[in-house]
Structures are given as structure tokens and as C-alpha cells.
């Protein structure tokens, strides 16, 4: 939490402490007006009076006054809010290994379904683009707020074939993202980078520009053969995790279509939100006023006032 007017807060705190000290002094002077009783220990043991009620009343007053003081100082809270100018590039691996059927029906089809789920979960107004990559990377769908069009563009993804140029895909996303706003890159892949530029370098650059890369590894632990070859499709999880870490994102592993869809849907909700400093003056003021009202009513009902 941050405040616009820290001096106001400090002055308010000084005033409140001064008032509390004065009040305490008056209370001590008022001791002479306390009801005298022969033996307080016996009274406590006999009547078992509820001492927590006056303490709760006191605490309520303190919290209420503190809330008002904080409200006057212009507080700002860092809260996740829907991103109005969010931009997301989904980079989908279309290398030959994505034709593997260890994830039903195929890894490519599962990735497509998961991307559709991501688009569904994204907040309206979020710009989404699609990049397909194998030996090279290309934009299938430029950034657009028309989510229906973006979803339909998934049908234009090329068939699985070729190498895996993760770095090229990340670089293409970086080049096409806007200069400001809430920006995110989603990387769905099943393989090891074996072509193009170094992805880690690009991930670091993206991280330096506050663009997190969320990586999703797709494939079963046993993997699967790349159709038409004798090569096994494996995942370099450490590498994918390092891309995510370098950019401030996160890594998730999906071994089936459902897990993949859930992971992307979750990312859709996360990436649609951004942390922003929200003016909380009104909230604190209302909470303080309600607290004072509650304290007054409680005090009135327990005979504290008038």
C-alpha cells in the first residue's frame, strides 16, 4: 500500500496519539468517579463480568479512526484489476512432434482446443494474437480484440511439420507487441528448441520489458514417436522453466488435453488481470464511518453513552 499524502497520515497519527493520551489522562482523573466496591476480586469471581466488551468497543474506535486517517492520506492499494489494454500473443508449436498422439487426439489438436479455451476465458477488450512456429515463426492472427475472429483463426494453423524455433517465435511476439500496456506471451510447445535464435536471451529481454512468458509443456512422461520417423518427442522442461523464470512468468506441464485446457483457461484469467495501484480512499472512509457508527451504537446499547 502506498499513500499520496504521507504527511497527512503522520499528522493524523500524531493528533490521534495526542487525543488518546489526553483521553487516558481524563480517564485517570475520572477514577474518583468510579464506583467503589469493597472487594473487586470477589466481584469478578461472583459476577464474571464480560471485560471483552469494553475492549472490543475501544478497538473498534481505534480501527475506525485509523481508517479515516488513512483515507485522508490518499491510500493506494496494489490490486489485480481487469487489464483494459492487455495484449497477449499465443505462440503455438507446429513442429512435426505435435502430430504425436500420446495426447488425444493429437498434441496439435489439444493445443488448439486449449488456445480456444484461453481465448474464451480472456477478458473482453484484451488483444489476442496467434503465432505458429516450427522451423520458422509466423503470425497467424495479428493482435485483435475480436475474440471470435481470433478463435476462428486457430483453424488456419499449419499442419505439424519441421523443427522447433522457440526463440524465433518469442522474438516475433516481442516485435509485434505494443510498446506499453499489460503484455503477455503464452508459449505452448512439446519440444526442444533446435532452430533459430536463443530463446533464453529473448526471454530475458522480454522480462526486462515486463513482458512475462507463460510456458506450457505438452506431452506424456513416456512421450511418443514423431509420426513418420523413429525419433521420440521429448520436452526440455528445464529450458521451458528457465524461459518462464527469466521473464517473470510461470511454467505448467500438461499430460493430457484436459490438463492443457485447464492450464490455458487459468492463464486466460491471470493474464486478463494486471496489478494496479487503486485509489482506496473511499473504501477506507466508508469503513471508518461504518466502524464509528457501529462503535457508537454498541457503546449506546451498552450504556457507555451518553
Amino acid at each position: 500500500m502506498s499513500v499520496d499524502r504521507p504527511l497527512w497520515l503522520a499528522a493524523g497519527a500524531v493528533l490521534a496519539i495526542g487525543f488518546a493520551l489526553l483521553y487516558d489522562r481524563f480517564q485517570r482523573r475520572a477514577t474518583a468517579r468510579d464506583l467503589a466496591y469493597s472487594n473487586v476480586e470477589f466481584f469478578v469471581a461472583a459476577a464474571k463480568p464480560r471485560a471483552w466488551i469494553p475492549r472490543a468497543l475501544q478497538a473498534l474506535w481505534i480501527v475506525a479512526v485509523a481508517s479515516v486517517l488513512v483515507a485522508l492520506s490518499g491510500p493506494h492499494l496494489s490490486l489485480p484489476v481487469p487489464a483494459r489494454d492487455g495484449s497477449v500473443f499465443i505462440c503455438i508449436d507446429t513442429s512435426g512432434s505435435m502430430a504425436s498422439s500420446d495426447v488425444t487426439p493429437t498434441r496439435a489438436q489439444a493445443a488448439k482446443g486449449a488456445a480456444a479455451a484461453f481465448i474464451d476465458e480472456s477478458a473482453p477488450g484484451t488483444k489476442i494474437g496467434i503465432i505458429a512456429f516450427s522451423g520458422t515463426a509466423g503470425i497467424v492472427q495479428p493482435l485483435s480484440t475480436d475474440h471470435r475472429q481470433v478463435a476462428s483463426s486457430l483453424d488456419e494453423l499449419p499442419l505439424p511439420n519441421g523443427a522447433t524455433a522457440i526463440g524465433d517465435a518469442l522474438k516475433l511476439a516481442a516485435e509485434n507487441l505494443p510498446d506499453g500496456g499489460h503484455r503477455v506471451v503464452i508459449l505452448i510447445t512439446d519440444g526442444v528448441n533446435n532452430a533459430g535464435v536463443d530463446p533464453l536471451e529473448i526471454a530475458r529481454w522480454l522480462g526486462a520489458h515486463r513482458i512475462p512468458v507463460y510456458t506450457v509443456g505438452i506431452g506424456t512422461p513416456n512421450g511418443g514417436l514423431i509420426p513418420g520417423t523413429s525419433d521420440e518427442a521429448t520436452i526440455d522442461e528445464d529450458a521451458l522453466r528457465s524461459y518462464a523464470d527469466a521473464s517473470g512468468g510461470a511454467y505448467a506441464r500438461a499430460e493430457n488435453a484436459t490438463q492443457l485446457q485447464d492450464a490455458l483457461a487459468r492463464l486466460g484469467r491471470i493474464t486478463s488481470l494486471e496489478r494496479k495501484a487503486v485509489d482506496a480512499s473511499l473504501g477506507f472512509a466508508v469503513a471508518g464511518a461504518l466502524g464509528m457508527l457501529a462503535a457508537f451504537l454498541l457503546g449506546f446499547s451498552t450504556g457507555r453513552y451518553p
Partner: peptide, 9 residues
């Protein structure tokens, strides 16, 4: 209600 008692001793 809320009361304050002072023990004589």
C-alpha cells in the same frame, strides 16, 4: 452496561 469499579483495597 459498561461500568468501572474501583476496589476499596
Amino acid at each position: 452496561g459498561i461500568v468501572r469499579l474501583r476496589g476499596a483495597e
